[in-house]
């Protein structure tokens, strides 16, 4: 069944490619249409005139730059902290015997299914009272808690595959326990940690609900919220092609990460979810 490459498989492959890439190509095409063309209405797929003008104006847009910085900063910090904490948890779950292990996993599971919108009200009310409203930290905290479940599962699944006996074997061979950990365990665990970090980053980068509810200025407003409030030359409507250019710009990091790490991401997604 495997190695056969029938016509149905080829058609299937083309279908997947069209499915996945058509909207991406579409928004790229839109981003090359001059703003005047879309303002007047331009239903054809390809631009009549190709133009870089949207990219120039987006990249020079102060509000958008700030949103990019916010999103990168907040997502990266949340990712690093979340993965660190998740590593501790996953290590404990994968290697140690202790009471309450199931409770930890159940909590993580419950959080993953939590309807985030239902937290918007109370969090907003709490944050404004303690001064976290519209700050980086005010987003980092919820991002961390909502990425932890994903990071914990992915890492637990990876850690269970690690042959921990090798650590003891190295120690028997005369290495100190630190050396054994660094030379043997770290290289084995690193890919898992890295994969968890990518998935966590995607989650934080994608968030919209917290992004619009817990921020209101360029202080902390992340990219998805900035896109939703994009202001163009028309005071009343978002500018189609400039907005598309902004959308393409924020999609580029995702595409680069996916191109480089596709194998790891797939492994991380599926190991955490199915084998776990």
């Amino acid at each position: 069944m495997r190695a056969k490459l029938g016509p149905s498989t080829i058609i299937g492959m083309i279908a997947i490619l069209v499915w996945c890439l058509l909207p991406v190509v579409w928004i790229i095409m839109l981003s090359f249409k001059p703003e005047a063309e879309t303002a007047a209405g331009s239903p054809q797929f390809l631009p009549k005139d190709w133009s870089w003008e949207n990219y120039q104006s987006v990249l020079q847009d102060d509000l958008f730059q700030r949103a990019l910085i916010n999103s990168f900063g907040i997502s990266l910090i949340a990712t690093v902290l979340s993965v660190m904490i998740a590593t501790l948890t996953a290590y404990a779950v994968a290697r140690l015997e202790f009471k309450g292990k199931r409770v930890v996993l159940s909590i993580a599971l419950a959080i993953a299914m939590f309807p985030v919108v239902s937290l918007v009200g109370p969090l907003f009310d709490m944050w404004r009272a303690v001064g976290l409203y519209d700050t980086w930290l005010g987003l980092i905290i919820p991002y961390m808690s909502f990425t932890l479940p994903l990071a914990i599962w992915t890492l637990t699944a990876f850690f269970r595959e690690i042959p921990w006996e090798m650590e003891q074997a190295a120690q028997v061979d005369g290495a100190t326990s630190w050396q054994a950990f660094r030379k043997v365990i770290v290289p084995l665990a690193a890919p898992g940690v890295f994969t968890a970090a990518i998935l966590t980053f995607f989650f934080a980068w994608n968030d919209f609900v917290f992004g619009i509810s817990l921020t209101s200025t360029t202080n902390a407003r992340p990219v998805p919220a900035a896109l939703a409030f994009f202001v163009g030359p028309d005071q009343f409507n978002p500018p189609t092609s400039t907005l598309s250019a902004a959308a393409v710009v924020v999609t580029i990091p995702i595409i680069i990460i996916v191109l480089i790490f596709q194998r790891k991401i797939v492994a991380g997604l599926t190991s955490g979810a199915v084998k776990g």
């Binding site: 996945c20 995607f202 919209f208 990219v223 998805p224 595409i255």
Partner: peptide
Amino acid sequence: SILIPYGIITVV
């Protein structure tokens, strides 16, 4: 290509 829709921002 299958990971691109997965990774893309929902708002986009």
